[in-house]
Design a protein around this nucleic acid. Structure first.
Length: 205
DNA sequence: CTCCGGATTCGT
DNA sequence: CGAATCCGGAGT
């Protein structure tokens, strides 16, 4: 199912800070199916969000904000609806969308998009940033047109298509790594195999 | 200041 | 499975 309207005009409702100010798990789930839009170099690139992860610091020991307020986590402590972009492994950028009111350091990591027309692979947080032209110059930027924003074009995933599972690459976080805070849509553009549906788990037991 | 290891990706 | 390659945060 081609969810991205190839050739159609990009239109919808821009998500405002109040959308991001809510509970981080709810924001993560609600972001699935929305469009992430980036204007760069006179062109617009976008994709549909099919995989995200919630990071609920400072308690969450998988979150960067587990160390509290540091230069790196400053943006996450700021107001909702802003971009938290960090550089990892000396070569990749990762995009987060800051949630909760100012003072609460939580965010949603963008892990995969179904790429729009002419956009390269977006299956993985590093690839999302590479394909949309996102780097640290956008760290702390407000999510609003034209540079970077999230659009609700009316698409609503059917509940059966929403999957949850443990987050990727956070084994260091102990029990926090087991929390099912990775949210996915059924899509061939996920960064990793889709989480096992609850029904399948119950069947095995 | 040094050391450790990382919310990754790609090639072997 | 290992290399690439920089940086943040902790510890001394």
């Amino acid at each position: 199912m081609p969810w991205v309207p190839d050739g159609q005009r990009l239109q919808g409702r821009v998500l405002e800070p109040d959308f991001f100010a809510r509970d981080t798990l709810e924001v993560a789930a609600d972001l699935l199916g929305k469009l992430l839009v980036r204007a760069v170099g006179g062109q617009v690139r976008w994709g549909r969000l099919v995989e995200v992860e919630a990071y609920c610091g400072p308690e969450d020991q998988a979150a960067h904000s587990r160390f509290g307020l540091t230069p790196r986590t400053r943006v996450m402590y700021g107001p909702p609806g802003h971009a938290y972009v960090y550089f990892i492994y000396g070569m990749h950028h990762c995009l987060n969308l800051v949630t909760r009111p100012e003072g609460i350091p939580q965010a949603v990591l963008v892990r995969a998009l179904e790429p729009g027309p002419g956009v390269g692979r977006c299956s993985g947080p590093g690839l999302v940033c590479r394909s949309l032209g996102i780097d640290r110059t956008l760290n702390g930027a407000p999510l609003r047109p034209p540079d970077l924003y999230v659009l609700d074009d009316g698409f609503r995933p059917v509940p059966e298509s929403v999957l949850r599972g443990p987050r990727v690459g956070v084994a260091y976080a102990g029990e926090w790594a087991e929390r099912p805070w990775r949210f996915c849509l059924r899509s061939r553009h996920l960064s990793r195999p889709a989480p096992i549906p609850r029904r399948a788990i119950e069947r095995v037991r």
